[in-house]
Design a binder for these strands. Sequence first.
DNA 1: GCTCAGGCAGGCT
DNA 2: AGCCTGCCTGAG
Length: 289
Amino acid sequence: MEITEGFDNGKNVPFVRLDGVRHFDAARTFTCGQCFRFDDGGDGIYYGTAFGKAIGVSYTDGVLTVYNSTAREYDALWNKFLGLDEDYDIINNDISEHFRPYGDTIDKAVSTGDGIRILRQDTWEALCSFIISQNNNIPRIKKIIAALSQGLGNEINAFGRTFYTFPTPESLINIGIDGIAAYRTGFRAKYIYDAACRYSAGEIDVKELSGMKDAEVCEKLMSISGVGPKVASCVMLYGMHRTASFPIDVWIKRVIAKYYPDGLDIEKLGNYAGIAQQYLFYYERSVSV
DNA sequence: GCTCAGGCAGGCT
DNA sequence: AGCCTGCCTGAG
């Protein structure tokens, strides 16, 4: 994979260009439901923020471009954030092997969703975002998160517009439950507050949790009020890159009922079960439109 | 208007 | 251990 660095005079930002990238699709990656803060700028580039910086990402015919990034930043941050350090040939094959007893649905799902990369998002952002997602619809989830970020985050100016960092736990604790509810979070306000307190207190510490098994981490997350099995597994998959974690939401319940009426032994789907889940989720949503 | 959304807690049996 | 039911709010 060849990496070159350049400067885009039109956008007035440095960029990094990677040639020969396979298994990447910007639209699928950013709209598959794993993240809520990246949007198509109308120019085929997905813009958003992560880790306090704003970037744009585009991909066409093997060429992936990360705008507003130097090569150094790419190596330090975006390579892992975008999941480009992983070999999706290996991952897709592993998934295919583990789903062998269950028919060819997974093969259709993989080919439909190929190019989705599981992002390595910030743990706190994933935790807070998926608490907000419960019993909620995607347009409103995005709206709430955008409003919280605009109200509590820091400004980032790039591409001639203003982005905002994700609110810190402390900034949410500062405004309290009523303050959080003022952002139209509804009954989730107290959950967000509890999560912020626990996170801020160091109870959900990435380094400390890194040595623990999925089941233990899951239990720890579920001790937060407002975090159940679904939210916990989303946080593990999207915010901790525990790719065996298999979130079961209403869509996946439908998938199981429809394609796997005899059930799926989720414990035996391998280390990339969560990525398989993402393919199945994307597949079912795309066929049901 | 009115249903329902990428769940969860709390209260039942 | 497994069912119910209510829940803020606003998109569709």
